[in-house]
Design a protein around this nucleic acid. Sequence first.
RNA 1: GGUCGGGUAGCUCAGCUGGAUAGAGCAACAGCCUUCUAAGCUGUGGGUCAUGAGUUCGAAUCUCAUCCUGAUCACCA
Length: 597
Amino acid sequence: MNIEVKLADSVKKAISDLYGVEAQDSQIQLSKTKKEFEGHLTLVVFPFLKVSKKNPEATANEIGEYLMKNEPAISAFNVIKGFLNLTIAPAVWVEMLNGVNATENFGVKTATENAPLVMIEYSSPNTNKPLHLGHVRNNLLGFSISEILKANGNKVVKTNIVNDRGIHICKSMLAWKKWGEGCTPESTGKKGDHLIGDFYVLFDKHYKAELAELQSKGMTKEEAEAASTLMAEAREMLRLWEAGDLEVYAMWEMMNNWVYAGFDETYKMMGVDFDKIYYESQTYLEGKDKVLEGLENGVLYKKEDGSVWADLTDMGLDHKLLLRADGTSVYMTQDIGTAKLRYQDYPIDKMVYVVGNEQNYHFQVLSILLDRLGFKWGKDLVHFSYGMVELPEGKMKSREGTVVDADDLMAEMIATAKETSEELGKLDGCTPEEAFEIARTVGLGALKYFILKVDPRKNMTFNPKESIDFNGNTGPFIQYTHARIRSVLRKAAELGIELPSALPADLTLSEKEASLIQNLAAFPSVVKEAGDNFSPAVIANYVYDLVKEYNQFYHDFSILKEENESLRAFRLVLSENVARVVKTGMNLLGINVPDRM
RNA sequence: GGUCGGGUAGCUCAGCUGGAUAGAGCAACAGCCUUCUAAGCUGUGGGUCAUGAGUUCGAAUCUCAUCCUGAUCACCA
């Protein structure tokens, strides 16, 4: 049993025996003792003053003495103001470490037969341009949340909805047809998604030029936009696509396939994947039935012009359009359709959408609509909303070409990691393949950790220069500490030192070691907290604290030179378990931790 | 203007179910490699927790107001 739970029970019993009152769980506040005070756990006694009818010190002393007598886990206590600091007996710590050591996959639950099924939608790219920095944050969050929910015992289905249709794709197609027909990824040596993205930018360039010319002839901006032949051609292409025109459709399919090949490469490099991919071209017509059904049930209403609306004024929101007067779908209708298909495919208990915070309103509405249309998980769907990633110079705009491309960014991170590693001589004696693998692990670890350690709700500034700093609260620092622990363990194995499966209880250990065990043992509750709050940052900051603490320990003790065999064994077991938890925690963030680097 | 976020050290961020003197990292300065990987460790300086009120034994944390900032309020996705 967890020591804090055990102590909480003892405190409860103390209150009842001493004062004849049953204490509420919320009154028992046990927290880790601050490092400037002596003790391991601190009980705040203020909530008990009313029943003890004594001052804080006297109450704390009374409870402390009761615990000393009746709770064998407590070996000492001291009182400062209203705080009762409890010292836990060394044997309890050793027992705790033995418990961690004996638990396979410590901190990770596996899904049972009837575990809830959570579907997580993330990434959701458009097929007219490559992935950029915003997608990086989305993908990393989505993947990490999936891993965290899995570790909390849920069945998880990772899904991606690819926006593969619409006017933006037609713009790329038109530009390719006009100014690049015959170009392929093979002929240009470009990744497919980059090639298509270039044509999208090209379209915009020509379109802007056309508008400028029209305006120079005296048209207003609006008139020019209406008169643009390029835009008219793009719209015509979309019409042809929707009508199933063979030539347009074939071109669309070919170009999309180039893009998918490019995306696959990016996803693979990033280390994210999906269990099921949906395409909007296959789902965008699906929502209509569901909307018409809602119309029959009276959940929705029709206006005179034939358009279909939802009245959300009772929820403090507005009226929302779901079908245009001509019967075509809008974004919301498509999301309803996708939901319908997904529910046919999987028995969804909970749905999580990883989408930027600019769509908060959309998901508020979607939740209400899915609920009213009869989806049992609609009401409690989670919009995992995250803030914008900005550059120091200002916001990114894809049409202005100032976006940070995901592929370029990853390549840059890896190159920097390689450079730094070489300078420090870390790659000496590695094969080129090993060297690249280490550079990849470190470079991507830096990127992923930098992004995931920040509260997702907050807008963040991505400073490429600072992110490549390998000191401090960074992924590489954590990876490095892990590698050093593995190195010690390797050396111990070479020396023929065997690690016992259980340590004897009669060890004396330092405050630092006790504190480390305490943090280590808290891992499962950290995983739970991260799952409850959908927060990779909770894991990231926990792992950093653990590693930081271990590092101090590491510099204070020379483990292998320790002559007391049981103390040496204890420190090795402790180190090994720190390494295990670090690895598990980092894996929950989608970050690899190598054994050597 | 309505709705929803955010505002903590020069910078990037933790802490937010109320608890002790508000913590890390970066940057600056000073130390530490004959010792298991120095991508490290130790120390110093740096704060009206946006502002004001309220609740409380106790507020960065909860409530209200104000200011600043972001997103959104499309028959775009």
